[in-house]
Write a protein that binds this DNA or RNA. Structure first.
Lengths: 161, 161
DNA sequence: GTCGCTGCAAAGTCTTTGCAGAGAG
DNA sequence: CTCTCTGCAAAGACTTTGCAGCGAC
């Protein structure tokens, strides 16, 4: 018999995230529901950048008993994005993808052939951005940077064919 | 009486762009049509980053006699993007916007309050990106960077109110 | 003349919304 | 209990596609 909650293992990091989430809900008079928790958890456990449809499929697969609707996924993602808990990326024809904002800041290398996304951090670029904003008297709240091109794997694949 | 073609003034830069475009069409056995020319010209003359709908409206306004269909705008933008003559950018909820790739590379400062977009160029950041791509064995085709925040004008406005 | 291009409207996608019942606080 | 949240299905927004006639070459 299941003696734990539906989640058996939680890292300290996830526990922190969850408590931030609950705090956020409380502040906005929103309710804590299993669907919302599962969406947060699934985003947390995924290394991928997920679009709403993939996220929904994943949730259906992992928690079929909840029969979570895609509308709830969209609604929750919007709510999380508004509250800066997730960030959306959109590029090319591939539509919008989401990632948890709680992770350290990083930028993205996006393969235009296979859609793979790699992450990188560059302090130098971050610093430069601060300086540019200063020059423009611009008060930064956020930024994103994407480098598009062909990833190593696809380059190899292209050579072979 | 109109003695010129439908366009009365052309910069050397535009003439070059147009001839590149014709070259591209020829190479791909595509036809040079007034609609395609007008789309290219409108993109060239616009300082804004246009989405397909805005671009279509602008064309309807400037060249109503052509009665250009939105489908043609979409088809031409896709064709231009495939051939790297235009680049599409997605800014948050604002959807996909297009700009001519022929212009010098630049990045964007976006005011989340008033929507204003400023452009900047930073050689240092460009150089860093090259280096990062090298580290990842990634073949860059393009990149985009956006800094989000509050512009000078809006900061002042906020203080006043 | 041929064959690609265009406008139109219909069909697809993706996302949002209205509603009635379920469920958190 | 109240009032939000949810799933469903319908509606909306945005983009693509099939087609018949038009037009570049």
């Amino acid at each position: 018999m299941e003696t734990h909650s539906h989640f058996t293992e939680r890292t300290v990091e996830y526990t922190k995230l969850l408590s931030d989430f609950k705090q956020l809900l409380k502040e906005n008079a929103l309710k804590f529901t299993i669907q919302r928790e599962v969406i947060l958890e699934t985003l947390y456990n995924s290394d991928e950048h997920l679009n709403p449809e993939d996220l929904h499929k994943l949730i259906q697969k992992e928690h079929p008993e909840l029969n979570t609707g895609i509308a709830t996924v969209y609604r929750t993602l919007s709510m999380l994005e508004e509250n800066n808990m997730v960030t959306s990326l959109s590029f090319g024809a591939q539509g919008k993808k989401y990632e948890l904002g709680a992770k350290d800041h990083h930028d993205h290398l996006i393969c235009t052939q296979c859609g793979a996304i790699s992450e990188f951090v560059c302090e130098e670029i971050e610093a430069r951005q601060e300086k540019i904003a200063l020059d423009f008297d611009f008060k930064i709240s956020d930024h994103s940077m994407q480098i598009y091109g062909i990833c190593k794997t696809c380059q190899t694949k292209n050579k072979d064919s």
